[in-house]
Each structure stands twice: as C-alpha cells, then as structure tokens.
Design a protein around this nucleic acid. Structure first.
Length: 665
RNA sequence: GCCCCCAUAGCCCAACUGGCAGAGGCAGCCGACUUAAAAUCGGCCCAGUGCGGGUUCGAAUCCCGCUGGGGGCACCA
C-alpha cells in the first residue's frame, strides 16, 4: 500500500519498484486487506511460453524482463510430518535431490503455519515469536530486501520429520522465507543453498554435504556448493548425478505418496482494487444474505457517481463510500438492502483492452464489436516506452488471452510487433514532467521551427536509442531544410517536363533513393532515410550550380521526390516546396513514387581485386562480366603482378562482379 | 551475486545474408561572395572498428576471454 497523500491506495506487485510506489516513489507498507484479484497466475505458463511467438518482433530486452518477472521454476512439493500436528506440511524445493541434506525447516513468520506452531509452543517461545513478528512487520520492504540483510529468526520449538530418513528437523521462523511464495515453508539444505548456509552458520545448525561437487566443505568455506556432482549420504540416490537424482527422488516420493513434481512462479496474482475515485467501479454488490453478488449484465457498466473537489481526495478508503445514494442498492438476488463495492479497478485494467474498444468506440451494446476487432486486431506495430515492459504489456497480454478463452477474439497476443522508442536526454539526464524539462521544447520550437525539431529527433539516430540533446543540432536541421527548400525555389522547369530528358546521373540517384526508401522506412531507419535525402539534396545543388542547371528535368524530378519523402518528417517545409513546384496541396497525398527499374541497372561496377585479402587494384567492369573473365582480368593487373612478384596463385575466390581475391603462397 | 545489450573519426551516427570501413550531420580548418559580418556556395581535415586471442581466402560483422558503459532481476527456496 502506498500511503502518501497523493495516492493512498493499494498497489499490485508490478507497481512496487524496489519497495517504492511506482507513481510517487513513496515507500510502500503492508496491510492485511480483503481485495479483488485477477487470477493472472493461472495464465503464467501461457504468458511465458507465448513469448516465443514474439521473438524477433519484440525487443529482446522486454522478452527477458517478462520472462524474469514471470519467473517459472520447476522442482517438487515434499510432505513433511510435523510432530504433534495431524496434517503434514508441504514445502516446495527446486533441489529435491538434496532432501537427505536437509537439517532444519524454515517457515515464513507472517504465515498462518508460523502462527499456529507458535501458539502451541512453550510460553517463552510464544513471546520470542511475537517479538520477532513485530520486528519483521516494522522494517520496510527496502530494508528487508537490502543486499546483505542479516539473517534473523526464532526457533519455534517444533520438529518436522524428514520423510526419507525419519530425521527430526527443528522448525524455525525466519523472514528470508516469504509467506506468499510456494507454501511459505522450506526445507533448509545449508550445504547446497547459500541462504540456508548463512542462516545455519548464524544459528549454529548442522551442515551436511550430500552432493560431491569437488568444492571445499561449505561449513568451512561459507560458500554453498550449488554446482553439479554425484550424490552421497543419500540412500538410494547415492552415485547419481544431480539431474538423475532429481528425477529419481520425485519418482520415489510419488510412489510413497510423499510428494510430487511441482512448479512455481514469481508472478503473483494481480491485485486490482484501488481506493480511488477515478477508475472503473468494481461491479459487485455486497449483500448481508447472499454475500458478494455480481451486478447483473443489464445494469452494466456501473457508472461513477458525480463527485468533486475534496470528496475525491485520497484518504486510504475509497471516496465512493461517501456517495450514499450510489452505494446503497437492493441486492440483485434477494432484494434486501445491500451495498456496492466502493473500490475502483486499477486503471491498467482499462488500458489492457483499449486497443479493442478503439475499433468500435460508439458501440453501446457490447464491450466491442467482434467483427471489427477481427478485422483490425491484433495490432501490427505497437510503439511505446520501455517503462511498460512488465506493466501494461503483461496485463494486456493476459487480458487478451482471457478474451480469447471467452471466444471474443481469435488471437492470443495483442501486439504483433513492438518498438520501444528512446528518450530525449540532456547531459545524460532524462527530461520528464516530474524532473522538469532541461531543454525547453517551446524555446527550441520558437528558434528552429517544428519541422527542424522533429527532423532533428528523427535524424539523431535509431528511434529506439536515447538522444542526448547536446549531441544534436536543430540549427543544422533548419539549415538543411532551408537548403532543400531553395531547390524548389530554384527549379525553373514546368511540371510538364519530360523527365527522360533529364541529367542521367541525377535521375539514377533519385531512383536509387526511391528504391531504398520503403524498406528503410519499414525497418525504422528514419535517420538513414534523412541522410540519403541530404545526399540527394547535395547532388541536386551541384547540378543546379555547376551542371545541367535549374531548368533540367532531372532537377525537378529529384526535387519533387525530395519534397515527397521529406513530407514524412518536415511536413510544413515539404508542403511549401510542393507549392513552389507548382502543385496544389497536399504533398502528403502525393504518395511515394515507384522507382524506374531501367534506371537502377548499373552500367558498370567497380570490381575490387584483393591479394590475400588486401585491396590491390580496382577494375571498372560490366555487371555481366563472368567469373572466368574477372579472374583473367585480375591476374593480368599490373598491380597484382607486382605484388605477386612471380608467386603462383594458390586459389582465386570470385564474387562476380564486385570482388576477386587472389590467394598466393 | 546472476542474466542481457552495447562499444566505428573530436562528437552523433552509416556500412544488405562475413566481401573496398564512410552515407549523412555536428564541430573544426581553408577558400569564394561581401566595405564587413551573417547567410550562402565550394573544398579540406579526421578512425582501421574498446583490448587480447580464434575461425576464414577474407571479420566492424561469427566464436572465446577481458575492459568500459547501459539495462534487467535480486533472500522466489
């Protein structure tokens, strides 16, 4: 829970970053509350496995972050009998092979089991436990998670029985075991787990090696032996490798009904209740007779009651509780006086499916129009900040899978491709609303114009990279745009000219650009597109000033295409160029022209001649020159003869028509 | 502590499946135009691809090991 004035609400696991509230950086506190959750953990396997479908189209970084966050681990549940308790206790372990090395058990201090065991312990133990529990609750999440948090704990005066060898294991409560992961209880194998070893050393508990790893005894080295090895001191497991022993012990435990293979996830269920006004009311009515009753479909959606001003201020309880007319409703089942749930849903619930609502925003009969969704979704290309890597993007994937299971969509992943755009930095620091803008965008726009500022951002580098504003030059962009604009001003030919009469070299350059632009755009290489346009602008300038002159048709052709391509980045400049060239608005509607393939055929190419990988000569040849011909020409080269100095070529590698490599000696 | 990504000119960045290291820009220098300056135009300078090995006819590109930077996870049994 975030307690600061601004938020005062409970949060989901994903919204707690390093023990701090994701929105306002306030340390979070824990509180026992009854809240609504979405069962995202039931989709954990699919959320993890389906990431493979996104390989290559999503940034590898985001895939890794989601995999880490879901955190699947495989191992076994093992049942331990507790002396004096009827029900055995399950523990989860990824190393069931080390079961013979267990020397104690640890339970989470805030678990029901710990409370139960403490309650049946001697008076002094009860006191120690109560004190310890208070202490654990008092420390913040940050302190608890700090890297070298000293191990703490209390002995509960109870014993568990190791199911495979009947040994009595003392049961401790310690906060390095979490109540909400696995079963909130572990078997401790100090020889082969660093955390257990640290605890055992601190409280003088036995350390027993059961895997021969060739490493020094952990009891002496204080380093747990987590590597591979053969099992020892482990009855039927002796002599087996770690992997074999894991399979074997699981089989033995299953046969005896003492355990089974199991897996666990780091992912927790999604807590969606929020004590805020702005959000979607949770459509549940609490009836004293019927309990929690869903609002009937024909009364959905539940709309917020009108409230304003101070009524909306967060106070740790939902503002909606004050809207009495709204809260008090008859139970849909029995008609008795009942109350609406006064919490609203996490707004991430809404953003998880907005992309589907957007295809039919005016449909008031359904969540969205299934046919429209079928037509438009999933999203081909999604662009967003990496900040949503495990919030929005995980929730949205989850909701999409739920909608798929409900038969509302036919796909299981909402975003086929993802691009994480970079940020604009100043001297290495992010500019943001909270930190304040280190460069005033308004000043930059005032000085250089919006076209130049946008062009600067597109030209600075690949879109996924951060840009440091100190490295870029909006002034340079403005100069370039003026330079391009002057071409349009200088063109003297009419739109009706015959392009085929134009300067051949310039025409070829123009059509090469036209051929390359579509794929560059699709690959998001906007910086390269702009560089190529700059190159063409330079060439046109040269033709105007010292070549065929401003009346040449190729000059017009090149300039028109420059305007069309530039309209992607600098629409105002491009429109004005278009007008100067004698057209009506809008260049944006002109469409990218198709290259004339006849102009793309190379008339001659430079063939590089290497000797032992070093360039020694260049040949101007026709693109159709055969390998044999190239070999002959290369060997005849004076340069090559000189370098070879009579040595016999061992091998000639030809990549016609661009390269010949002669291997000598 | 574990995992991932990146490293090319003074700076930002290019280089298709290994095949001529430079497309473009910034900064700098020189020149033209100008009474002068700005703007403009032309030209020039600049790295052998972080370091060390390996594979290959050939490596910025592939492999291994380092260094530096960035990011993710971090008592999850």
């Amino acid at each position: 829970m975030c307690i600061r004035d601004r938020d005062q609400t409970v949060l989901a696991n994903e919204q707690v970053v390093g023990g701090l509230c994701e929105r306002c950086d306030t340390p979070v506190t824990k509180k026992k509350l009854t809240q609504w959750y979405f069962g995202i953990t039931q989709y954990a396997d699919r959320l993890l496995d389906d990431l493979n479908q996104l390989e290559g189209t999503w940034p590898a970084k985001v895939l890794t972050m989601q995999r880490n966050w879901i955190g699947r681990s495989v191992g076994a549940d093992v049942q331990f009998v507790i002396e004096g308790r009827d029900e055995p206790v399950s523990v989860y372990t990824t190393r069931p092979d080390t079961l013979y090395g267990a020397t104690f058990m640890v339970v989470a201090p805030d678990s029901d089991l710990a409370a139960e065991l403490a309650a049946t312990a001697p008076e002094q133990t009860q006191q120690e436990f109560a004190t310890y529990l208070d202490r654990v609750k008092a420390i913040t999440e940050i302190e608890r998670q700090s890297t070298d948090h000293e191990k703490t704990g209390v002995f509960l005066n109870h014993w568990a029985i190791n199911p495979v060898n009947g040994e009595r294991l003392p049961i401790w409560a310690a906060d390095y075991v979490l109540s909400d992961y696995g079963h909130g209880a572990i078997m401790a194998v100090p020889a082969h787990d660093q955390r257990d070893l640290d605890f055992a050393l601190k409280f003088d508990l036995p350390v027993r090696v059961v895997v021969e790893t060739g490493l020094p005894d952990p009891a002496d080295s204080h380093i747990a032996a987590t590597g591979e090895g053969r099992l020892i001191n482990s009855g039927p497991l002796n002599g087996h490798t770690k992997t074999e022993a894991i399979d074997l012990i699981i089989r033995i435990l299953e046969e005896k009904g003492l355990g089974r293979a199991a897996k666990n996830f780091r992912l927790r269920d999604w807590l969606i209740s929020r004590q805020r006004y702005w959000g979607t009311p949770i459509p549940i009515i609490h009836c004293p007779q019927c309990g929690e009753v869903p609002v009937p479909d024909d009364q959905l959606p539940v709309e917020l009651p009108p409230m304003s001003g101070d009524e909306l201020r967060p106070r740790g309880i939902s503002p909606l509780a004050d809207a009495e007319d709204w809260v008090n409703v008859p139970c849909p089942q029995c008609g008795a006086a009942a109350k609406r749930d006064t919490d609203t849903m996490d707004t991430f619930v809404d953003s998880s499916w907005y992309y589907l609502r957007f295809v039919s925003p005016h449909d008031d009969t359904a969540i969205f129009d299934i046919a429209e969704a079928e037509k438009w979704a999933p999203i081909d290309q999604y662009v967003g900040g990496v900040t949503h890597a495990i919030l929005h993007l995980l929730y949205s994937r989850f909701v999409t899978k739920v909608l798929f299971d409900m038969g509302l969509v036919t796909f299981t992943e909402p975003f086929s491709a993802l691009l994480n755009q970079g940020m604009v930095l100043m001297d290495g620091s992010a500019m943001s609303k909270s930190r304040g803008n280190l460069v005033r965008l308004s000043d930059e726009l005032e000085e250089f114009g919006v076209d130049a500022v946008r062009l600067t951002m597109a030209f600075a580098g690949p879109p996924e990279d951060d840009i440091d504003w100190k490295d870029v030059s909006p002034g340079g962009s403005a100069r370039f745009l003026a330079r391009a604009w002057r071409l349009a001003r200088d063109v003297t030919s009419a739109p009706e000219v015959v392009w085929a009469d134009g300067d051949h070299a310039l025409r070829r350059a123009t059509h090469r650009l036209l051929a390359d632009v579509p794929q560059l755009i699709e690959a998001f290489k906007f910086n390269v597109v702009i560089a190529r346009v700059m190159d063409l602008v330079n060439q046109v300038r040269r033709v105007i000033d010292s070549g065929a002159g401003p009346a040449d048709p190729a000059v017009r052709e090149a300039t028109e295409n420059i305007a069309i391509i530039l309209s992607l980045f600098a629409p105002y400049t491009a429109e004005d160029m278009w007008r100067l060239l004698g057209y009506q608005p809008s260049v944006a509607r002109a469409g990218l022209r198709k290259p004339d393939h006849a102009l793309l055929v190379e008339e001659s190419v430079t063939c590089v001649v290497q000797v032992n990988g070093k360039v020694r000569d260049r040949l101007e040849v026709s693109p159709q020159t055969s390998e044999a011909e190239l070999t002959k020409l290369a060997l005849e080269s004076e340069q090559v003869q000189h370098i070879l100095a009579g040595a016999e070529p061992v091998k000639v590698i030809v990549r016609a028509p661009k390269l010949v490599n002669i291997v000598a000696r």
